[in-house]
Amino acid sequence: MFGIPEPWWSVIRAVVWALFIIIFLAVNAIVAVWLERKVSGRIQRRIGPQRVGRPIGWAQTIADVFKLLVKEDVRAEATDKWVFLLAPAIPFAAITLMFLVVPWGKNLIPLNLNIGLLFVVAVTSFEVLGLFMAGWGSNNKWALLGAMRTAAAMISYELPMVLAILAVGMTAGSLNMNDVVNAQSRVPFILIQPVAFLIYYIASLAEANRTPFDFTEAESELVAGANIEYSGLRWAFFFLAEYGSLVGTSAIAATLFLGGWRGPILPGPVWFLIKTYLLVYVAMWIRWTLPRVRIDQLLDFGWKFLLPLALADIAVTGIVLALL
């Protein structure tokens, strides 16, 4: 194509997709923070930001970004140097990788992996590693507590999450994201697998560190969690990863349960964004409604309720599929 030999063409394709995903994540953080402020404002019968970028305050988060960019990058003496310095890159990289297998439209997928569903689960497990590195490297008790809570929470929500995704894979008969979307051409899976959707959504709230499962960064207990010692751009990467993981889990949920980019009239990417941000909005709505649970409550809930439920869901799905 265009006189460029094939191997180079795929390199260009990869670079363009990578740039697109990173820019999307950056823009998403700006938009999502703005949305969060607006939604929280409306729930408390305020109107949220409105002065910078009148009348809806659209420039407020952009101003915040500039503030972050000019802040000093502080590293305390007693930190574990390389662990501390490398930690912010990992959660962000994990989220970027996650978007590699998310379809934006017909044939609009960065990497058409055959086992896209498993890939998503695998790369998200890196995120906790980065948070742990941050917590350990900071040499700060709050950071370490936050990291420890992250690890503890992760082993309890990851399993139900994988099983919920597996139920979708069984229903679709494939682990390929494109196939999953195509299998929903008539009915979105949320109607066929409502239990799996609920399990996935609850687990994804924990994954994205959202209230009611935000004890990993509980402001009122741990000040900020694992990223407490970070400032400036390094902190911004954690922030990007946090909102990236919110939009990432929402995008996966939209793809797996709401039919992805499928929808009438509007083009695929538009539908995909609408569904994704609908779920992002729901997460914000939940955040400003529910208080934080305790860490042991999530562990209990994950192991003693979500996991059996997910297993039962898989068993029922298997039996129904075998009978059909």
Partner: peptide, 30 residues
């Protein structure tokens, strides 16, 4: 953790979400 508790919790969460959603439709008092 009893299943009945979870049912109760689900109902209460739904109620709470209803309240906060209703607040969003009202006019801000800013």
């Amino acid at each position: 953790m009893k299943v009945a508790d979870i049912g109760k919790a689900a109902v209460n969460i739904a109620k709470g979400l209803g309240v906060t959603f209703g607040e969003q439709l009202k006019k801000p008092i800013t």
